[in-house]
């Protein structure tokens, strides 16, 4: 019986070409597995008490994610392992990336290293880093003499 062409492999090239034309170059190099392996998208937010770093890591196991802080740099790394499929399975599309990734960011302020929390929900890692007391904005009362 001939293979059914609905999920065909020939469209892979078209898909990559579509991406070339639609995505800005910086984003392409970030998101395309052809150029750079896996660089998961990272967002950083700041409020007066803490920094929040969020990384999109769909389909990981909690124990395969590593978060570390060294010299004011936050490093998030890990490995995504592929599910095992029987050798008789035919692959129609293979767009997901499996393997190691690492992202490192220099934090803009000092943080309390012992108060960092990391939470993994719905494939998104959220790291909350409370700011060190000395970098928090302080209100100074003006004395009248």
């Amino acid at each position: 019986m001939a293979g059914w062409a609905g999920f065909g492999r020939l469209t892979d090239l078209r898909h990559e070409i579509d991406r070339l034309f639609e995505a800005p170059l910086a984003e392409l190099s970030r998101s395309s597995n052809l150029l750079s392996g896996w660089t998961p998208a990272m967002d950083i937010y700041e409020d007066k008490d803490s920094l929040v770093v969020r990384v999109e890591l769909p389909g990981m196991k909690k124990e395969d994610i590593e978060v570390s802080l060294h010299d004011g740099s936050l490093s998030i790394s890990g490995e995504r392992k592929g599910a095992e499929h029987s050798s008789s399975a035919e692959i129609y599309r293979s767009e997901r990336f499996f393997g190691r990734f690492q992202r490192t960011v220099t934090l803009p302020t000092l943080v309390k290293a012992d108060k960092i929390k990391a939470q993994y929900t719905d494939g998104v890692l959220t790291v909350t880093l409370p700011k060190a007391e000395e970098v928090k904005p302080k209100h100074i009362d003006v004395q009248v003499s």
Binding site: E27, R30, A41, M42, D43, I44, Y45, E46, D47, K48, D49, S50, L51, V52, R54, E56, V105, P108
Partner: peptide, 9 residues
Amino acid sequence: PGQALFRES
């Protein structure tokens, strides 16, 4: 919370 310093998603 707060403002985005950096956003890729």
